[in-house]
Simulated assay, not measured.
Amino acid sequence: MVFLLLLTTQTVFTRADDKPASPLSQAHAHNDYLHDRPLYDALDHGFNSVEADVFLVGDKLLVGHTLGETTPDRTLAALYLDPLRQRVRSGGGQVQPGGGPFRLFIDIKSSAEPTYAALTTLLASYSDMLSQVQDDKFQTCAINVVISGNRPQATMAAEKKRFAGIDGRLSDLNSDVASHLIPVISDNWKSHFQWRGAGEIPAEEKQKLRQWVRQAHADGRQIRFWGTPDTPPMWRVLQDSGVDMINTDDLPGLEKFLRDNRSNH
């Protein structure tokens, strides 16, 4: 029994090469479920944030990029919530040791209201590890859930008890909405910037990016962009500008970049 417990703990806190994966707070795994080992590959690379697309099929929340790619066994619970619960219980209440709350982005791809209703019921059964809001008071726990995609914003805003926040957009900057309701500002990089991650970013675009980051932080929110090319110059600009989550499909590439550049930030 003791041996099994130790083995479980070792599996949770070490990488495949037996080196500890210290947490990388800025590392966000975009479309995480497309990797060979959903969640686990990201954790092994030290990521503290992942994203999963979900579809409501019958009464199940299935994970996949498109509805046609979903299968009955690839549920949100099986791929993410259950292994995260095991990780939290084995890790003294944390997903990544010393990493602070882990971010789980759930991108709703099916109809917003029925999917969120099913998701709320599911999340309630994992309430022991989820940050939550009760009567407008935020309680931090091991995992912060953020709802993206088809977001039932009015429904979520009206809830007295809530296990997730809303993934906002740049249009939500300067909003007076509570930061626990919209904890993150996310948007499509290519809709707002011409620079594509090669050479130097134009000065006016760098200034615009930094202004948006400052405003998000002043409002108590984090910020990220999707559609950013996976290049070191892009990662450098995002890191230097204080973007909270660097979106990537290249787990080892971003890990290497962040670890090589950690001492300077």
Rank of each mutant, 00 (worst) to 15 (best):
M1D: 13
V2N: 05
L4E: 12
L5S: 12
L6P: 01
L7Y: 06
T8A: 11
T9C: 10
V12P: 00
V12I: 13
R15D: 13
D17Q: 12
D18V: 10
K19Q: 15
K19V: 15
A21E: 05
S22C: 08
A27E: 04
H28G: 08
D41I: 06
D41F: 07
H45E: 14
H45S: 10
E51G: 05
D59K: 14
D59R: 14
L61G: 08
L62S: 00
G64W: 01
T66Y: 06
E69R: 11
T71R: 14
P72Q: 07
L76Q: 12
A77N: 11
A77P: 04
L79T: 10
L79C: 11
P83M: 07
P83Q: 07
R85L: 15
R87H: 13
R87V: 15
R87G: 07
R89T: 13
S90R: 13
G92E: 09
Q94R: 10
P97M: 05
L104P: 09
I106D: 03
D107Q: 11
I108P: 09
S110F: 12
Y116S: 02
L122Q: 12
L123W: 01
S125Q: 15
S127W: 02
M129L: 15
S131W: 06
S131P: 07
Q132M: 11
V133F: 09
Q139P: 00
T140W: 03
C141T: 12
C141F: 09
C141P: 02
N144T: 06
V146F: 01
I147W: 03
G149K: 10
R151E: 08
A154M: 11
M156H: 05
M156Y: 04
A158W: 07
E159K: 09
K161M: 07
R162F: 00
F163A: 01
F163N: 00
G168H: 01
S171A: 15
D172C: 02
D172Q: 00
V177Y: 00
A178I: 03
A178P: 04
S179W: 08
H180M: 04
H180C: 02
I185M: 03
D187H: 02
W189R: 05
S191F: 13
S191V: 05
H192F: 11
H192N: 09
F193A: 09
R196N: 13
A198P: 01
E200Q: 15
E200S: 14
P202R: 07
P202K: 08
E204C: 01
E205P: 04
R210G: 03
V213N: 01
Q215R: 14
A216Y: 01
A216D: 00
H217R: 01
A218Y: 02
F225K: 01
T228G: 04
P229L: 03
D230I: 10
P232E: 11
P233W: 07
P233L: 12
M234P: 02
M234R: 01
W235Q: 03
V237R: 00
L238I: 05
S241I: 04
V243G: 00
V243L: 02
D244C: 05
I246V: 13
E255T: 12
L258I: 14
D260W: 06
N261F: 09
R262Q: 15
N264Y: 11
H265S: 15
